[in-house]
């Protein structure tokens, strides 16, 4: 678990140090990427807590979600509709759902642990 936290910090540092610049019109994709990444992490945590973690689902979910969201946003740009909002909405809802599930599971686990002790 420490490794995950460490890699998060390394990623943050890398992000701050990176000198790559993207054009402003791609900022939508960036926001989707952020949400997709967060969703994947939270989803992974949920699966881990639940005990049904599957690395294939985890990895494919991350990339597939990002690609799908980016595709939606891309389509939206060409159709003149802000379709990336749909992706953001979906990710946001899932984020909250997953966090709620995690919270409940953690609380129930904690309760169980206390009863047992």
């Amino acid at each position: 678990m420490w490794l995950a936290a460490l890699s998060l910090i390394v990623g943050l540092v890398l992000g701050f140090l990176s000198e790559i610049r993207i054009p402003p019109e791609y900022s939508n994709y960036l926001s989707i990427a952020v949400l997709a990444a967060l969703d994947t992490i939270v989803g992974g945590v949920k699966a881990h807590v639940k005990g049904d973690f599957d690395d294939k689902v985890f990895i494919t979910g991350f990339f597939f979600n990002i690609v799908l969201a980016a595709g939606l946003a891309f389509l939206g740009v060409y159709l003149g509709i802000d379709l990336y909002l749909a992706a953001i909405f979906a990710f946001g809802v899932r984020l909250f759902n997953n966090i709620a599930v995690i919270r409940r599971l953690v609380i129930s686990k904690w309760d169980n642990a206390r009863k047992n002790s």
């Binding site: 678990m1 490794l3 995950a4 936290a5 460490l6 890699s7 998060l8 910090i9 390394v10 990623g11 943050l12 540092v13 890398l14 992000g15 701050f16 990176s18 790559i20 960036l30 926001s31 990427a33 952020v34 990444a37 967060l38 994947t40 992490i41 992974g44 881990h48 973690f53 690395d55 985890f58 990895i59 991350f62």
Partner: peptide, 20 residues
């Protein structure tokens, strides 16, 4: 599992910091 998690957190951290 942890390795995968680390990779994903690395990417997430990177994206977050970059976005910020």
């Amino acid at each position: 599992k942890i390795a995968l998690f680390s990779v994903i957190t690395l990417i997430t951290g990177f994206i977050l910091a970059y976005s910020y």
